[in-house]
């Protein structure tokens, strides 16, 4: 991936095994969001390849890839302001319905379930503009999980949330993992990453500087220097 001569993510090779949560850690501008954009086919690769189930997919459109059971959330909240919370979540369920994968009426149950799991019950008929920032983020997550994806990519899902909200989201993500959902999580909150993820990738300047078990990755000197130096002390 090149942005006008600058390689955004370089020489990164990651392999996602099913049913785990993979964390991507790194300072702003280290290429985390670009990595997600590349994985979900929003930006084209200038080199390298992407595989899903052993099948190359780096030439198919983003929409086609999404229909193979991949859901994502965005760094900034992207809800449709004209629709209610329930309708926004339902939009996520639509992709499965109409393609014959799921029987009719089941969608309603899924929507109710996703709204319940993200703690949005009672807010179904509100519009996104009437919700707190944290609640808007939870609608994003609900929309992503409602279609029961196989792979979920979350770009800073808890940004702007308070500590207790973060813990709730962390618990939800772990619960989803127990149900077999593979996840890629991009976050700034180191403590949350350590608590939530099974495997951590640390990036800086578009390069992988460390990867492995979360607890050991955050102890790597290179990682501390690049990112944790100041923040780690705030969190521990």
């Amino acid at each position: 991936m090149h942005f006008g001569g600058v390689k955004a993510v370089d020489g990164l090779s990651i392999d996602l095994t099913e049913g785990s949560i993979f964390g991507v850690l790194g300072p702003n501008g280290s290429g985390k969001s670009t990595l997600l954009a590349a994985l979900t086919r929003f930006v084209d690769l200038t080199a390298g390849s992407l595989h899903l189930d052993g099948e190359e997919y780096h030439r198919i459109p983003a929409a086609t890839f999404a229909r193979r059971g991949v859901a994502r959330t965005f760094q900034t909240v992207r809800l449709l302001p004209g629709l209610t919370v329930e309708e926004n979540v339902r939009l996520g369920a639509d992709r499965i319905r109409g393609r014959g994968i799921r029987e009719r009426g089941k969608g309603d149950d899924d929507v109710a379930e996703a709204i319940g799991r993200t703690g949005l019950r009672g807010l179904e008929r509100h519009r996104p503009g009437e919700l707190s920032y944290g609640a808007q983020r939870r609608v994003e997550i609900a929309r992503a999980i409602v279609a029961k994806p196989r792979l979920l990519l979350l770009d800073e899902p808890t940004a702007g949330m308070n500590q207790s909200e973060r813990q709730e989201i962390s618990a939800l993500l772990r619960e989803l993992r127990e149900e077999g959902l593979t996840q890629v999580l991009v976050e700034h909150d180191v403590q949350m990453m350590v608590d939530t993820c099974d495997h951590l990738f640390a990036m800086n300047f578009g390069k992988l500087i460390a990867d492995g078990v979360p607890a050991s990755v955050v102890r790597e000197p290179a990682v501390r220097e690049a990112y944790l130096g100041k923040r780690w002390s705030e969190h521990v």
Binding site: T40, A66, R72, G82, L83, R90, L91, D94
Partner: peptide, 22 residues
């Protein structure tokens, strides 16, 4: 469903694509 899809395509095409909408 059609109304929601159209809404998504208008307001945020990138989001629409991530929902599997062509």
């Amino acid at each position: 469903a059609i109304g929601r899809r159209v809404e998504a395509v208008r307001e945020d095409p990138e989001l629409a694509a991530s929902m599997g909408i062509d």
